[in-house]
Amino acid sequence: MVARHDLTTDPELLAALLQARRGTAFFARKLNELSDADLDGDSLLPGWTRRHITAHIGYNARAIARLVEWAATGVETPMYPSTEVRDHEIDFGATLSPIALRHLFDHSAVHLNVEWRDLPGDAWHHTVRTIQGREVPATETVWMRSREVWMHAVDLANGAAFGDIPEPVLERLLKDITGAWKTRGTDKDLVLKVTDRNLTFGDTTSESPAIVSGPLAAVVEWAAGRGSGGVTAAGPGRAALNSTVPAAPKWI
């Protein structure tokens, strides 16, 4: 039997798909290391248990698969009817039995992977709409999923760290986060310096910014609101910081 493979031949897209699939495998490994009882434990996200994280990742795969189906058929199939429906779905999913939660993750990941695999090359450029209302090409669904699985693998609080996330994913995460700040104007007088990559983000026109600096993984962890280990702060900026690292502006 001939092996099935991705219909797209775009090398950049294939590389992005590989990154997303590796992230899914990484999440699966961290999830499978947890016992059923461990699922009741707290995640790194306030108010969410590991059950919530697992349900979210499962339903997220289904939602992104709907966007891929939209690109394939031209029939509008939104991710969710509303954010309220999405939140209710996650809360409900968190009440499922451990085996049902694990099946939700496994089956939804396979479904999404098949939708990606079978999407013709030209359909990847068809426009779909995210839950936030952004009009994006179907290629964006790959990044949407990659971001979720890599970062929420850390949120399972099972030993994964931002240092385990591939550098290209970390760099794009940081661009996403700082871009959201810029759009809202919440990066005023704030500059991020990535010391191991010579990268700078934020309000670089400020004459007296607060400067948060550190290695890439640590800066992304801080910017994503997951902790301040490994970063330092200096400069007057919005407050007299001295060595105290401020809380990052809200991202999502």
Score class of each variant (00 low, 15 high):
1 M>W: 15
2 V>C: 06
8 T>M: 04
11 P>Y: 02
12 E>V: 09
20 A>E: 11
22 R>Q: 15
22 R>V: 04
23 G>W: 00
24 T>N: 14
26 F>C: 09
32 N>I: 07
34 L>I: 04
39 L>G: 05
46 P>H: 08
46 P>E: 09
52 H>W: 02
58 G>T: 05
59 Y>Q: 13
60 N>Q: 03
66 R>C: 00
66 R>N: 01
69 E>D: 12
71 A>R: 02
71 A>H: 05
78 P>H: 09
81 P>S: 13
81 P>D: 14
82 S>D: 01
86 R>N: 11
87 D>W: 01
90 I>T: 12
90 I>P: 01
91 D>R: 10
93 G>Q: 11
94 A>K: 06
94 A>S: 14
97 S>W: 00
99 I>G: 03
100 A>G: 09
101 L>E: 04
105 F>S: 07
105 F>T: 10
108 S>W: 03
108 S>E: 12
112 L>G: 12
116 W>A: 09
119 L>I: 01
124 W>M: 07
126 H>G: 08
127 T>K: 10
132 Q>R: 15
134 R>Q: 15
142 V>K: 05
144 M>L: 15
145 R>C: 09
145 R>P: 10
147 R>W: 02
149 V>E: 06
150 W>K: 05
152 H>G: 10
153 A>I: 03
156 L>C: 05
157 A>D: 13
160 A>G: 02
162 F>Q: 06
164 D>N: 06
164 D>Y: 01
165 I>H: 01
170 L>H: 02
170 L>W: 00
178 T>P: 03
178 T>N: 07
180 A>Y: 00
182 K>H: 08
183 T>A: 14
183 T>Y: 08
189 D>E: 14
190 L>A: 11
191 V>Q: 03
195 T>E: 09
196 D>M: 03
196 D>P: 03
198 N>Q: 13
201 F>P: 13
202 G>K: 06
202 G>W: 00
203 D>V: 01
209 P>W: 04
209 P>V: 11
210 A>H: 02
214 G>M: 14
217 A>W: 00
217 A>P: 02
225 G>K: 09
226 R>H: 08
229 G>I: 07
232 T>C: 12
237 G>V: 12
239 A>K: 12
242 N>Y: 11
242 N>G: 10
243 S>C: 08
246 P>A: 10
246 P>N: 09
247 A>D: 04
249 P>E: 04
251 W>V: 15
